[in-house]
């Protein structure tokens, strides 16, 4: 029976995406918090911060509550994150690219999440599913980018 004695790390470490490297550009807009959907209102003094970098490069910063998932936060603020399977880790439509500075503070993705990440477009070394990232003190200030929805060009595009 064959056995791979050495399995290299699954993805070779990529450079941080330029969107993170160019910090502060474009401008950060601080959007007032609205509460609906599955997110909770943080208690005073317990607010955590998260910044989403949208497909066009704009940044949105929110004060959120521990335990809320990035998918729920994004949907509560009408960001373009789909969550086709309703946040049950059964699709890859809530794919986010995590700022490498915060990536290692997250718990490692489990097999189910990795199986779905396999199918995500534009996968990077720090890709995760938004439904699986729950806000906590450890990742206060986390920055994530929504991947631009690009496909690999295929032959069918030219028919």
């Amino acid at each position: 029976m064959f056995r791979a004695t050495f399995l290299p790390r699954i993805v070779t470490r990529a450079l941080p995406t330029p969107r993170f490297a160019v910090s502060g550009v474009p401008k950060v807009s601080f959007t007032p918090i609205r509460f609906h959907g599955h997110v909770h209102k943080p208690k005073v003094g317990e607010e955590l911060n998260v910044t989403f970098i949208l497909k066009d490069g704009t940044q949105r910063k929110y004060e959120v509550c521990a335990g809320d998932s990035l998918l729920d936060i994004a949907q509560a603020h009408n960001l373009d994150m789909e969550g086709a399977c309703g946040g049950s880790c059964a699709c890859s439509t809530c794919h986010v690219i995590v700022d490498p500075e915060y990536y290692d503070a997250l718990e490692e993705p489990d097999d189910d999440e990795n199986d779905m990440l396999d199918l995500a477009y534009g996968l990077t070394e720090t890709s995760r599913l938004g439904c699986q990232i729950k806000m906590s003190k450890d990742i206060d200030g986390i920055r994530v980018a929504l991947p631009a929805m690009t496909r690999n060009v295929s032959s069918s595009d030219f028919e």
Binding site: A84, C85, T93, L119, Y121, M149, R151, S154
Partner: peptide, 18 residues
């Protein structure tokens, strides 16, 4: 019908959106 029969719901969604 546009691309042939392969891909999961995520890829179908992305295609439909485009």
């Amino acid at each position: 019908i546009r691309k042939g029969s392969s891909g999961v719901i995520a890829s179908t969604m992305s295609d439909a959106f485009q």
